[in-house]
Amino acid sequence: MKPVFYLAAAAMIAVALALLLVPLIRQGRRQGRPRGVFVLALLVAFALPLGAVGLYLLIGTPVALNGVQKQPEAMSIEQAVAELQAHLQAEPKDAQGWLLLAQTYASLRKSAEARDAYEQVLNLQPDNTAAMVGWAESDSIVREDHRIEGRSLELLERAVQLEPDNQRGLWLLGISQFQHDRYAEAATTWRKLQPMLEPGSAVAKAVAEQIAVADTRTGHPPAPQGTPVAADGPALQVQVTLAPALKDQVKVGETLFVYARAEQGPPMPLAVARLDAAALPATVTLTDAMGMAPQLKLSSAARVFVGARISRSGQAIAQTGDLEGDAGVVEVASKAPIKIEIDKVRR
């Protein structure tokens, strides 16, 4: 019965959307608007309810566009995008057209193109909160380290100031604060988001979990409404030593990073510990609570590369002259101690 029910529900949604949108499309065509703009709008209208939850869970946003091929005319998403691009060349001041193009690029995972299109919206409408948040989100995906800082952070702060109930803006702002070790601020930001979410939903649980992690990082116990991180999650015990030949090269105040990143995927660590290099030799346990971003966790990978680095600058990004060592790739489920000797100088 479930497939029949879903098909019937989908058909009713399609009919309702057609009754609402097709007359608008016809009217727009009579006014000279290109067909692609309205076909793309119809595609987005069908895709939005289906894609929103998926993209929110993936990168922490409540809006997504997954192209759906159900349309009144036999036009592909690529053709519709091409017509919209042609329209924008003729009408470059159509802010809504640029916004639609940006959101469509984002749904197609063309983040650099999406960021450029959001830029066009901001040039026309500097206070467009959807474009602010979209630009910041796209920029974080394009960056190798996925950090939200600089202009992205400024846009998010401005967006939530103008629109305090902007769910995507609050979520991404909290991620940025978390990435910059501002855990108390991240927890406060996410607590503003909590009342806007459906109680008991997967998104609400994920936000509560991240609040608990942030509270733990600040030295406070998780808030009563938080969902604590599972105690049975992965835990990699890493034992780090320094090669005798390099002991004289370590200076007071330098920082030791112990990290695990996915064997295949973005270079951003799934778990990282930061210590004073003077603590060597040291033993660290890497867990899900030590990720740099809430959506990237140790438990999300089966195998990880485990390494250790003494940073001269104190920055998380490796630089020439840092001292390094690694244990290669290990299973996340491994219970045996992982031994690393820092024995190389980064060139």
Score class of each variant (00 low, 15 high):
293 A>K: 07
292 M>I: 08
245 A>W: 10
295 Q>R: 07
280 L>M: 13
318 A>M: 12
290 M>S: 08
257 F>M: 06
301 A>R: 08
271 A>D: 08
306 V>L: 01
268 M>H: 03
276 D>T: 10
272 V>D: 02
300 S>F: 02
307 G>Y: 05
287 T>I: 02
301 A>G: 08
311 S>E: 08
317 I>R: 14
274 R>T: 10
308 A>G: 11
307 G>L: 07
277 A>C: 10
267 P>H: 02
316 A>I: 15
250 V>S: 07
292 M>A: 01
257 F>T: 02
274 R>C: 09
257 F>S: 04
308 A>H: 09
292 M>Y: 02
309 R>F: 02
308 A>K: 08
296 L>D: 02
247 K>I: 08
279 A>I: 10
316 A>N: 11
318 A>K: 13
313 S>T: 15
316 A>T: 13
266 P>H: 06
275 L>I: 09
272 V>S: 03
313 S>A: 10
319 Q>F: 08
278 A>C: 12
317 I>C: 10
295 Q>W: 13
266 P>T: 09
314 G>H: 13
288 D>A: 04
311 S>W: 09
309 R>E: 05
266 P>C: 00
252 V>I: 00
289 A>N: 09
270 L>C: 09
276 D>V: 04
314 G>I: 08
271 A>S: 12
254 E>I: 00
247 K>H: 12
249 Q>H: 12
291 G>A: 09
265 G>L: 04
316 A>F: 12
255 T>E: 10
289 A>I: 04
314 G>S: 14
292 M>S: 08
249 Q>L: 11
305 F>R: 10
285 T>P: 07
317 I>M: 15
322 D>T: 11
278 A>S: 15
275 L>G: 13
271 A>V: 07
319 Q>C: 11
289 A>M: 03
256 L>K: 00
261 R>A: 05
265 G>A: 06
304 V>R: 05
255 T>Q: 04
252 V>A: 13
312 R>A: 08
262 A>C: 00
260 A>Y: 07
289 A>Y: 04
292 M>D: 01
268 M>F: 10
320 T>P: 11
320 T>L: 12
317 I>S: 14
304 V>W: 02
302 A>G: 14
276 D>C: 08
304 V>K: 06
319 Q>T: 14
308 A>I: 05
290 M>H: 03
310 I>D: 11
284 V>P: 10
297 K>Q: 11
